[in-house]
Amino acid sequence: MTEYTFAYLDEQTKRMIRRAILKGLAIPGYQVPFASREMPMPYGWGTGGVQVSAAVLVPCDVLKVIDQGADDTTNAVSIRRFFEKTAGVAVTQDTQAATVIQTRHRIPEAALREGQVLVYQVPIPEPLRFLEPSEVETRKMHSLEDYGLMHVKLYEDISRHGAIATAYAYPVKVEGRYVMDPSPIPKFDNPKLDMAAIQLFGAGREQRIYALPPYTKVVSLDFDDFPFEASKPDHPCGLCGAQDSYLDELIVDDDGTRMFMCSDTDFCAKRREGGS
């Protein structure tokens, strides 16, 4: 334990990241640049989220880490162990019991409460990036609220596919001001962005942090005649029978038999324990 500073990062770095987080909370949806550090894991494995988690963790925190909703995948397990080792914090798989939840590409099914912190891993924080390659130009567009281009993306979707085909990383407008990429969560999760917990977004490679304070108004962009829909596969969970949770599709045998099951493993397990 003694060979590491608490939560791996040195105190000055954590201070710098906390400043960025506070600025992000003060300007919901605004991407705050920060001096991202090299972490002992490759980019794309959650370096941004890990730095944010490291900056917010305190010794009494209880940490939960999920990857696509699951607590038991490689990425989740290794990040959880990383903080067990470097911060010595308690860990859990129980959504309600956790005080800090780091997530990759999902929001837990169970409603989060005040006092909890949800930390997202973000690959590309700039929602305008795929249409406007210039960072100078996208920053100008944010500052001038020039967001016509965002709807062009949705327009292109409809003209090509007959519906808004964007299924994840679905752009939102925050408090009527900044357009924000909610990280590649399924659009099914978008309505949950309006929540009681603090939400922090960290992009390590892109060196950006942004945030949503509790109860921030978050609206998914859409057209009057093509309204936003939080869609999911039209099946119940094959394990717990839930009708209203986001599902993963699994091929379970060589004949291509498919099965749908909750992507949120904690949610599914609790239902099975309580239900049967």
């Binding site: 249409l131 020039d146 967001y147 016509g148 281009l149 709807h151 062009v152 327009y155 292109e156 409809i158 003209s159 090509r160 859409d222 057209f223 009057d224 005649d225 093509f226």
Partner: peptide, 21 residues
């Protein structure tokens, strides 16, 4: 990299048009 329709529609959307049709 945007369709002809999207190119023409951008200014409309920039000034608040929100009806795809």
């Amino acid at each position: 990299n945007v369709s002809a329709g999207g190119n023409v529609g951008e200014r409309l959307m920039a000034v608040g048009a929100r009806h795809y049709g």
